[in-house]
Design a protein around this nucleic acid. Structure first.
Lengths: 148, 148
DNA sequence: CTCATTGCAAAGGATTTGCACTAAT
DNA sequence: ATTAGTGCAAATCCTTTGCAATGAG
């Protein structure tokens, strides 16, 4: 299965700096790197428990930090009161659409945004570092049926 | 002084729905409505204490809720781990620039953003509700001198 | 063996809530 | 008098930290 390869980058990254390659770390990494959704720390824990690979909360948070540091995972804050994590794909920078009804997240890109934010920052005397755009709305599915 | 008039809108709003017009509420409202910065709940409390008008934390949060409900104040989340509040001015919608060094906040407008986000949302099947854009960078002041 | 990681439980920061008490109308 | 608001402390939510036990290299 190709999935095994997903955690290899993390394995390598750990070995490169003589950090222990442990089962909990690999479990979190594999789950997150193959995830198709933007997961919260709690969700990561729940999914792992469901998979029979229970990992302590502290370890989850600590591993998430390591994954973010490794650059394999990106941390997101959509103003929900907690953070979500997504695998860092090749996409250089992308924005998010968040369904305020079910929490579903979609992504999109817009190069104009990059230029626009740089110009705005400059005109205010700011040295731009990054930006964050989130569009809130109701997704297709939620617009239809009841979301019980 | 013209400042007194600032809280009148809040007074009226409260009276209209038979809600008690209390000293703590007016204190929070006056401070916030005349603020020139985006304040956090904690800052509101500190400033009030400094002014000799100490208000309990719970009351501050409860009053902030009321103020937001009244539409006189707007709540912002810049991903700092806490919320900030600003008086709702006439500006229909504006974006923010946040200095990652000192926390200074500046605002700007861009009508194109409104249109762009609506189009993007539509193309993804989302019914757009609102959006949030924050540009992070280092402000002019922080780019110079040391920020001790 | 040695040092980093793990897990649990306690600690933290921001915000909320329960409740007896006080105040607005 | 009523009814809602107030402050305090306890409680919650998400996340971090202390520490003894465990495991990777």
């Amino acid at each position: 299965m190709a999935d095994a390869g997903v955690t290899d980058r993390f394995r390598t990254w750990l070995r490169e700096r003589n950090l222990p390659v442990t089962a909990p770390r690999l479990a979190v990494a594999e789950l997150l790197l193959t995830a198709d959704r933007h997961l919260s720390a709690e969700e990561v824990g729940d999914e792992l428990t469901a998979l029979g690979t229970k990992v302590g909360t502290a370890t989850i948070y600590r591993t998430l930090d390591v994954l973010v540091e490794s650059g394999l995972v990106v941390e997101r804050d959509f103003g929900e009161g907690f953070k979500r994590f997504e695998p860092a794909r090749d996409i250089p920078h992308h924005e998010h659409l968040l369904c305020t009804s079910c929490g579903h997240v979609e992504e999109f890109q817009d190069e104009r945004l990059e230029r626009m934010t740089t110009l705005v920052a400059e005109s205010h005397g700011f040295a731009r570092q990054r930006h964050r755009l989130v569009i809130y709305g109701v997704c297709r599915d939620c617009q239809r049926g009841s979301v019980s």
